[in-house]
Amino acid sequence: MSEILVRAEGLRKVFGKEMVAVDDVSFTVARGQSLAVVGESGSGKTTVARMLLGLETPTSGTISVCGRTRSGRAGSAERRRRAREIQIVFQDPYSSLDPLQRVGDIVETSLAIHNRLTASERRTRALDLLEAVGLAERHAGMLPRQLSGGQRQRVAIARAIAVEPQVLVLDEAVAALDVSIQAQILNLLADIRERTGISYVFISHDLAVVNQISDTALVMAAGRVVERGPTAQLLSAPQQDYTKTLLAAVPRPGWKPRRREAAAGRSPG
């Protein structure tokens, strides 16, 4: 049996007095597994991701990562330990990268916090990591604003894997990218997973993307899990109407958007 790296049991998150964002959500993630958490905006999937990282505290329920229960506030040493176990890549890499720091320095900063390396070793390792995510040495001297969206997301991934985490949470990590760039990032993530055995928790609203990145999936609506199972099975034979609706929204080959005037009924004027 594969080692369980993430175990969430009965997660519930209530904001204020009545806003239930997550309600009784449970799942596990094994070593090397890729789990997708799927749902529309407001389904609670990002709140689940934030609870895994300790950015939100569950109202009730438990989370363990790498065999250790996550609870309460952590000191600096504990935060560093947790960071070596689980990392996150956000949807908008530009807002998560220091705009005044050059790309090489961004990766080196992550290495400096979590590794005992000399300055020369950090520089070499940073360049190796950038190469591993498909960036060249020249990119190390650039600022985030000088890169494309896809390149910035590669930097965010390089920074995250610099820590050598066992689990990587990807919160809508390709949602803002063009389809061709999405494919490149998904292929990159598949390569990293095959090479390192890292586990993924992939948060997404897009079932087409989920099909390319995950082994298993759970579908959330209004804070609750409405369906779960192997991704291929869930997509080929969904049982719940909500899942069927999400699947119906995925563009098919040959799909073309309607012209705006046609969609509007060509109102006179």
Rank of each mutant, 00 (worst) to 15 (best):
I86M: 13
L207A: 08
N187C: 04
S43P: 01
V179F: 05
P99E: 13
S236Y: 02
K13Y: 12
K13H: 13
K244Y: 06
V6L: 03
V179N: 01
L246I: 08
A176G: 02
L207N: 10
I88N: 08
R159C: 10
I88M: 15
L111K: 00
E172R: 04
V133P: 00
G75E: 09
P99W: 14
L135K: 13
G134T: 11
I4Y: 00
G54C: 06
T124A: 15
A262R: 14
A36V: 04
G39Q: 04
S120F: 11
V163T: 08
W255H: 14
D206N: 15
Q233D: 15
E56R: 00
A21T: 05
A176Y: 02
R266S: 13
R152T: 07
K13D: 09
L218W: 03
A136P: 02
D105V: 13
P251C: 13
V22W: 07
I181R: 01
A208D: 04
E18D: 14
V29C: 00
I63N: 02
F15G: 03
A74W: 09
A112Q: 09
E121C: 09
L147G: 02
Q101W: 12
V133L: 08
I192S: 07
M142Q: 14
T47G: 06
T196W: 08
A21K: 06
P257G: 12
L168P: 01
L170V: 06
V225R: 08
E3I: 13
L117Q: 10
G104K: 07
D24H: 11
A183H: 04
Y200D: 04
A36C: 11
L11A: 07
D105R: 13
S267H: 11
E137R: 15
V107C: 08
V209L: 12
A83W: 01
S96I: 07
V209M: 05
Q239A: 10
M19P: 00
A175Y: 06
E137D: 15
D171I: 07
Q33A: 10
V219T: 03
L5E: 01
A263F: 14
K244L: 05
L117W: 06
L186P: 02
E172D: 10
V6Y: 03
R125C: 11
G10V: 03
E9G: 00
T118N: 09
A126K: 02
V20D: 07
A217C: 08
E137I: 12
E56V: 10
N187R: 13
D191I: 01
L186T: 02
A112H: 10
P93A: 04
S110K: 05
D206M: 10
S41K: 06
E172S: 07
A232C: 02
S76T: 09
A162Y: 04
R122K: 12
D191C: 03
E194A: 15
L177W: 05
P253C: 13
A221V: 03
I106H: 10
S204G: 02
F90G: 04
R7G: 01
A119R: 15
A232S: 13
A221R: 14
A30D: 00
V226I: 13
S180W: 06
A263V: 14
T57C: 03
E85A: 13
G75Y: 03
D241G: 02
P253G: 10
S180D: 00
G10P: 00
E9V: 11
Q87W: 09
E56T: 05
A140R: 01
H114F: 11
